[in-house]
Design a protein around this nucleic acid. Structure first.
Lengths: 341, 341
DNA sequence: GTTAGCACTCTTGCTCTGCGAGTGCTAAGC
DNA sequence: GCTTAGCACTCGCAGAGCAAGAGTGCTAAC
């Protein structure tokens, strides 16, 4: 059944008011504050209908109405307005994300930081998966008599290095030889492809010194590659939840923090979300622990391909309009920064 | 005034009991549970003396006694026993810190992780300061037509790299030329020395291409060096505080988390502590926010020189004996791992 | 010096109460 | 037939009052 114009207006007013105040909103408040042109009694009747249709709930008889997840969904899909960021906010975002240093991970961490500051919620970001990323070259550099730096550079610009202590000293020239050989072998292959290859075997050589070196490097090469696959998860604004009335008791705050701190779980949840701006509200989330949270994520791109995610998590009562705009603005900005001209 | 043998025994019992139970301990409990050989009334008299001397306090008339910071100090200095770690714990520690991968930062992060798991407290670690660390070499590697990787290796084994996007394309050979020139210029100097030099000026050269390249690399070189100076702070077990009765209210838990999350402050606090095992109890801490926390830190070494710190923070009521032993064991282990044979 | 006994104090948990906010229903008005 | 005023009713919340329990401090006897 379609909602009448007036019902929509009432619903919008309730949602807005509740988002702002966190208090159940009553019919009297509504008619006074929002100039509905009808009496509280009429509004009560309408609210009663809305409740029947599942848009409102009632914490108890003598309290005002509270929007249900369904109401938030309607609000997000049809009722809320776009919010323009203030000039100050825009400036702060572009300033902090700019710079010619293309320190990918740092920049992303930064983005999460800005996001939590503006929204006063807990924000997070994950770096892109690198499965499809192709290796550019491998470099093994001397650092000490028996220490080397193994450096792997991917086409995506991702760089990873590991400091290795070798059991035996190595002949200097083997390093560059092995680097070249490995680069020759693996350049242009994706990380996941390489990991499925029989890497160790693929390095039998008749130059004995090099073969010995390869033997101690290879296992670490694999481990380093694996760690390149791992997405990083950044969290920021964790303590923001303490100023949110919904989490004004120890049990809830604890559950929230523990949920978010189960990082691997949380990474999986984020990874499985679609591209673009995605909003999931309360019970729309599959996870038990997120039944009264809302999650807003958006994706950013690197050179139009690799995809990372940025978002916030908070109570279902959040400023969907503002938060969505901010997240969109930041991810757009990120994508632009990360895309070569 | 020196405490009698019996007073010491009573004090020890009170501290132990309170550490275990978090409940004020009464005279009756004490005489029953700890087999003191005297009646509750006698114990009451002794407790009254101890209170006068500042070792005990009284939350209110009809509650048992609670140890003061002074009592904990005495306990830590004279009363507590060394605790041997279980075989399981020892094994778990050495297993997790071993491996020939000398990924310094990762290993340290790991150590903090183990520490919080064993102690059920919030743990932290800071990586060594690199001020005195000397540069080994600088390498600028091609990554893309206009992207390079700037890599700085210090003698301490610390490696830092930054991906830079240059405004103009660069001639390939300039990179290795500039790398060599920079290495020649800075090798063996400490990071802080270099930062006080007039770096940009020191790179005037008549090879024009190289001079242009240097111009865009140098500012980033400085920034990267600066970031090498920054110690990293790892925190773990943050949500452990929720299971500690002392933080069983929102206000306190919030304050704790916010205090620890002021990372720069917290880094400074840690950095200013002496070497070796240091225990500060409640009011012994200078910081306002730590007046009812205790902090235990110990230092680990890298090749006998550079010094990082590992520790826990929790309520003054903590298992000083166990925690101290664990921290000592882990830092010993770390120092051994990080020291070349 | 040690101990039993007892009055006293303070916290904690419980119930009871009144107040305020808001609803739902009914009957009258437009 | 929709809208509105009026009113009874419901519930949560905060404060008061009370009893139970734990532990002390003091006194007097051992």
């Amino acid at each position: 059944m379609e909602l009448t114009e007036r019902k929509l207006r009432i619903l919008q007013a309730i949602v807005s008011d509740f988002i702002a105040s966190a208090e159940p909103v009553g019919s009297r408040t509504l008619s006074k504050k929002y100039d509905m042109g009808v009496s509280p009694a009429t509004i009560r009747n309408e609210m009663s209908d809305l409740e029947e249709q599942g848009y409102l709930t009632h914490p108890h008889t003598s309290a005002g109405r509270v929007p249900s997840d369904r109401a938030y969904r309607l609000y997000v899909d049809r009722l809320m307005d776009r919010v323009e960021l203030s000039e100050r906010e825009k400036r702060s975002i572009s300033e902090q994300l700019a710079g010619n240093i293309m320190e990918l991970d740092r920049t992303i961490e930064h983005a999460a930081n800005i996001l939590s500051e503006i929204t006063n919620l807990t924000s997070f970001a994950i770096t892109p998966k690198q499965e499809e990323s192709r290796l550019k070259y491998i470099n093994i550099l001397p650092a000490d008599e028996s220490t080397v730096v193994l450096m792997i550079v991917a086409e995506s610009g991702k760089v990873k290095n590991t400091v290795l202590r070798l059991k035996a000293p190595y002949p200097e020239e083997s390093l560059s030889l092995l680097s070249k050989a490995m680069t020759y072998n693996y350049r242009g292959k994706t990380i996941s492809d390489i990991l499925t290859m029989d890497i160790i075997r693929s390095f039998e050589t008749d130059i004995e010194a090099m073969s010995r070196l390869a033997e101690s490097i290879m296992p670490n090469f694999i481990r380093t590659l694996e760690s390149m696959l791992d997405t990083n998860l950044y969290l920021d604004g964790l303590t923001n939840i303490f100023s949110i009335p919904e989490y004004n008791n120890l049990e809830k705050a604890k559950m929230f923090l523990e949920m978010v701190n189960q990082r691997n779980n949380f990474k999986d949840v984020l990874a499985s979300r679609d591209e673009g701006v995605v909003i999931t509200i309360g019970s729309e989330n599959r996870e038990d622990l997120m039944q009264d949270c809302s999650l807003i994520t958006a994706t950013y791109h690197i050179n139009g391909k690799l995809v990372g995610k940025l978002g916030v998590i908070g109570p279902t009562r959040m400023k969907y309009d503002k938060v969505t705009s901010v997240i969109e603005y930041i991810t757009d900005n990120l994508s632009r920064t990360f895309t070569l001209p």
